[in-house]
C-alpha cells in the first residue's frame, strides 16, 4: 500500500489557533475521562439500587428492576444516545426546550445527554452484577442474619452487600472499563472527546493510520492503568476467609 507515513504529525500545527494535534488529543482525553467518571457514578449508584431491588422478596419491586434491565440492556447504546440527544429535549416544555437548545452551551447539552445515556445503560449491567453477587452468597447468610433479628435493610447493608461487592470487583472492573470505551459514542453527537479528536486529526492531516494508532495506544494505556488500579483495590479490600480472594 502506497501510504505516506509521518509520525511527526502530532506536533504539527492544526491551523486552528496555535494548537498542535497533540493538544487536541489531550483535550479529548480529558473529555473522555470526564464523561466516563460521571456516567460511572450514576451507573454504580443506580445499578446498586436496582441490583438490590431485583433480590428483595417483593414481586412488584423486583419486577420494576427487571423491566428496567431488559429495556436498557436490549436497546443498542447508539439508539439510546440518539433518543436522549434528539428526542427527549423535544419533549420538554416550550420555554425549557428553547433554553436547553439555544442558550445552553452545545457541549454542555451533549455532555448531559451522553452522561445520562451511558449512566443509565451501564446501570442495567451493574444491576446484574450486583444481583449475581448477592445471589452467589450462601442462603444461610441471609437466614442467619434474620435469625439474629436484623431488619431487611440491615441484612443488606451489614451482611449481603459488603460481601457481594467484594465478589463482583472483577466483573465490575470490566464494566468500569466499558464505560471508558463506550464514551466514544459521544463523538457522534459532536462532543469532542478522544475519538472525535482522532477522527478530526485524521481528516485534517490526512494521516489516518497515525491518528488511529495513537488513539489505540491511549485507550489501551488508560484501560490497562484502570485495570491495575482496580486489582489493587480488590487486594486492599479483601477479607481473609471470605470467598473473594483477589487472585490468591
Amino acid at each position: 500500500m502506497n501510504y505516506n507515513w509521518d509520525w511527526g504529525v502530532f506536533f504539527k500545527s492544526t491551523g486552528v489557533g496555535s494548537e498542535t494535534y497533540l493538544d487536541w488529543y489531550i483535550t479529548g482525553l480529558g473529555w473522555t475521562i470526564a464523561i466516563a467518571i460521571a456516567a460511572w457514578i450514576i451507573a454504580l449508584l443506580l445499578g446498586s439500587l436496582l441490583g438490590v431491588m431485583r433480590t428483595v422478596p417483593n414481586r412488584l419491586v423486583s419486577g420494576i428492576a427487571t423491566a428496567y434491565v431488559e429495556l436498557f440492556r436490549n436497546v443498542p447504546l447508539l439508539v439510546q444516545l440518539f433518543i436522549w440527544y434528539f428526542l427527549i429535549p423535544d419533549l420538554l416544555p416550550e420555554g425549557l426546550q428553547e433554553w436547553y437548545k439555544q442558550d445552553l452551551d452545545p457541549t454542555t447539552s451533549a455532555l448531559i445527554s451522553v452522561v445520562v445515556c451511558l449512566g443509565l445503560f451501564t446501570a442495567a449491567r451493574v444491576c446484574e452484577q450486583v444481583r449475581t453477587g448477592i445471589q452467589a452468597l450462601p442462603r444461610g447468610q441471609e437466614a442467619a442474619a434474620r435469625a439474629m433479628g436484623f431488619s431487611l435493610s440491615q441484612i443488606y447493608t451489614n451482611v449481603l452487600l459488603p460481601q457481594a461487592y467484594r465478589i463482583i470487583i472483577p466483573p465490575l472492573t470490566s464494566e468500569f472499563l466499558n464505560v471508558f470505551k463506550n464514551s466514544s459514542v459521544a463523538s457522534l453527537i459532536g462532543l469532542m472527546e478522544l475519538l472525535a479528536q482522532t477522527k478530526q486529526t485524521a481528516e485534517f492531516s490526512a494521516n489516518l493510520f497515525e491518528a488511529f494508532t495513537l488513539a489505540t495506544l491511549i485507550y489501551f494505556t488508560l484501560n490497562m492503568g484502570l485495570m491495575l488500579l482496580m486489582r489493587l483495590v480488590e487486594k486492599k479490600v479483601s477479607v481473609p476467609g471470605l470467598i473473594s480472594v483477589g487472585g490468591k
Partner: peptide, 11 residues
Amino acid sequence: AGTTSERLLKS
C-alpha cells in the same frame, strides 16, 4: 465533522 468548513469555522 472532518470538513474544511469545520477548520475554517474553528479558526
